[in-house]
């Protein structure tokens, strides 16, 4: 029986494991893919206190090594279900079942998909969710960005330095993102704005060759692009817990700053919690709080 099982080895989950180990709790971290979470795709972190310019990879690796050195056990298994059996809980993974006194859900966010046919098939063959990761492959080519928030605007701006033409496609007639970014973009020669429109079809067999764009008035247009960067937000990875955990209408776990979920002994930390500010620093903050609350819960039961 573990004291604390943490689901997710991003900044929130790994920070929880450090606090748990400092309280000498038997701790297991379960991670589906690899440690680090979303931050590994950030080239340079500029807004984390006292360590400006550290790369996301270095940050994640330092944090992971710190957690391991503190004695956290980490297993790379995907959690498919959690069960509340009153006195103890069960965490079910693709490889086994683990018993624990408490659980911290720190699964974070995944990219929201457009939902067009063959989207998954063309990932890495023209379809991308990360301009800074994949932009370099589109030197001198035509690309499109979908979205209306800061990420879409930043992606478009980044790509105007690399690509030949950047189409920015947004379903509304104005952007949600910062005005300064929009103005910046308008000054670029190779940007084309397509408002009130959605990407409705991906064209190309082995790789993306174009997209069909449908205007809200019903008219359709095919545009030749080699790359499509989808920046329409992220969604929480809480699907596997909704049998017992209360989620809000957007799928985030309902919990206040004390990180308690609706189930006693199950806590949430990081970006998958319902909150306003999702930053590296708030993720690690949640990580500390959730672990301290879990430790309190265990010690009270003794």
């Amino acid at each position: 029986m573990y004291d604390i099982i943490i689901v997710g080895a991003g900044p929130a989950g790994l920070t929880s494991s450090i606090y748990a180990r400092r309280a000498m709790k038997k701790t297991l971290v379960l991670e589906a893919v690899s440690y680090g979470g979303q931050i590994i795709n950030t080239l340079s972190i500029e807004n984390y206190p006292a360590n400006p310019g550290i790369s996301g990879f270095d940050f994640a690796t330092k944090l992971y090594n710190q957690a391991k050195e503190m004695g956290s056990e980490v297993k790379f298994e995907k959690v498919t279900e959690i069960k509340d059996n009153g006195d103890y809980k069960e965490v079910i993974t693709t490889k086994g079942i683990y018993e624990t006194k408490t659980i911290i859900l720190a699964t974070g966010l995944e990219n929201r998909k457009l939902g067009v046919t063959r989207e998954d098939e063309l990932i890495g063959k023209g379809v991308s969710y990360c301009a800074t990761c994949d932009g370099a492959f589109y030197k001198g080519k035509n690309v499109a960005v979908v979205g209306g928030g800061n990420t879409a605007l930043e992606d478009a701006l980044y790509l105007t330095d690399i690509a030949k033409i950047v189409y920015l496609i947004h379903r509304r007639d104005e952007f949600r993102g910062e005005e300064a970014l929009v103005n910046n973009l308008k000054n670029r020669d190779n940007i084309k704005f397509i408002y009130n429109s959605n990407v409705t079809k991906l064209i190309g067999d082995d790789k993306l060759e174009g997209i069909e764009v449908t205007n809200n008035d019903g008219s359709k247009e095919d545009i030749e692009v080699s790359g499509l960067f989808i920046a329409i937000g992220r969604i929480p990875e809480n699907e596997n817990f909704k049998n017992i955990i209360a989620l809000d209408e957007s799928g985030y776990i309902v919990a206040s700053e004390d990180c308690h979920t609706n189930v006693s002994g199950i806590f949430v930390s990081g970006d998958n919690r319902a909150k306003d500010v999702r930053q590296l620093v708030t993720a690690v903050s949640d990580g500390a709080i959730a672990a301290c609350e879990a430790i309190k819960f265990i010690n009270k039961k003794k």
Binding site: G124, D134, F137, Y138
Partner: peptide
């Protein structure tokens, strides 16, 4: 290394890494 070997990356249709 796709920066040194962009021809190989192009030839094998690599548009995202790690691939």
């Amino acid at each position: 290394n796709i920066d040194d070997e962009d021809e190989l990356a192009e030839e094998y249709g690599v548009f995202s890494i790690p691939c």
